[in-house]
Nucleic acid binder design. Structure first.
Lengths: 185, 185
DNA sequence: ATGCGCCTTGGACAACTGCCCAAGGCGCAT
DNA sequence: ATGCGCCTTGGGCAGTTGTCCAAGGCGCAT
């Protein structure tokens, strides 16, 4: 199906996007350079522009791929707060995934292509969460999902500044999803 | 008290920090250059390193000053959600203030000096909000304040991607501060 | 008018940037 | 062994970067 050379090419592509995710987190989106990328991926500098049309295209593809992957692993649990905070525990605000999320949010502000891609990703996941909330009888599931997602992203950012115990926060977050249902019923 | 020359010097300093805030928002923290800054401030390039020891020092001072100023204007209202969302209405996620906040959060990840300054600023304001919450009988005021601040910052970021009506979100946010008090009483 | 401080200018420096390209390597069919 | 495609290399290009610095300007006391 594929020649050994083509397989090697695909491997280089993968190594470059992996290096991009690392470096976006470490240095920041606009501080990542082609030569940095090549060195981290263990390839020659010229390869970056052979496999990708531009540096921006590489960063965009890498970041969106990483975000899509991170979000794909989240499934509805019986306890929604625990289910959503579980992944959050792994994301300290200083890990690559958290930082790539925030860096990409900011990049979206300055690049329409990134903005539309991220916007779609967030909207899709938010819709999924809204569905889970609706199943549980939470009122205003759409708005609640929007607030819940924003809170999680905000907590990731704030935790990088000032690590806080997730356990203390859990009962407060529960108000978001229970306040509308339990309290009113 | 001050000579005309010294006054001129102070004016240049102010123009440079103002330009820094604009450019951090427009281009991103690490994409701001000395010459960009000088041009925007209307001064010669060499002046940047006369008035500031380094580019990083200028960006840090400018960003922290802008954040301190933005936070200083927030006072407790009778309705806390309205009081905190009022300023949020002005911050669309694409205005200089919102972007400087997020950019500086990320810069704090890579610069210990920025991190400690921002951490103190956030902690101080969070403590103030926790006090307001405690006055209103909200349970777990500290944790609630932490979640509330994170939610507001998260909403700023998400609104830049996908503008959403603030009015729809307000009742959901109210659960955060009322769930603990009203529901239980 | 001489000297002192502070502010300002514009250019120099080496290092780095994104992007491009001639030259070569490799696997494979002919 | 010859040719074809894809992948790879390293260097070149023009432009930008942070930082520094000699030279000059200005207000003011002497």
């Amino acid at each position: 199906m594929t020649s050994p050379m083509a397989a090697r090419g695909r491997d280089v592509r993968r190594r470059l996007t992996a290096a991009a995710v690392e470096l976006i987190a470490e240095k920041g989106w606009s501080a990542v350079s082609t030569r940095m990328l090549a060195e981290r991926a263990g390839v020659a500098p010229g390869l970056v522009h052979y496999h990708f049309p531009s540096l921006r295209a590489l960063l965009t593809e890498a970041a969106i791929g990483a975000m899509r992957e991170a979000v794909a692993g989240i499934e509805p649990a019986s306890d929604l707060v625990d289910g959503l905070l579980g992944p959050l525990d792994a994301y300290t605000g200083r890990d690559p995934v958290s930082l790539v999320f925030v860096e990409t949010y900011l990049a979206a502000t300055r690049d329409e292509q990134v903005r539309s891609a991220i916007s779609a990703l967030v909207a899709e996941f938010q819709g999924k969460v809204a569905g889970w909330l609706a199943d549980r009888g939470v009122v205003a599931p759409e708005a609640t999902a929007a607030v819940l997602m924003a809170t999680i992203d905000g907590l990731m950012v704030h935790r990088a500044l000032n690590p806080m115990a997730r356990t203390d926060l859990r009962p407060v977050l529960r108000r978001l999803v229970e306040g509308g249902a339990v309290c009113g019923s």
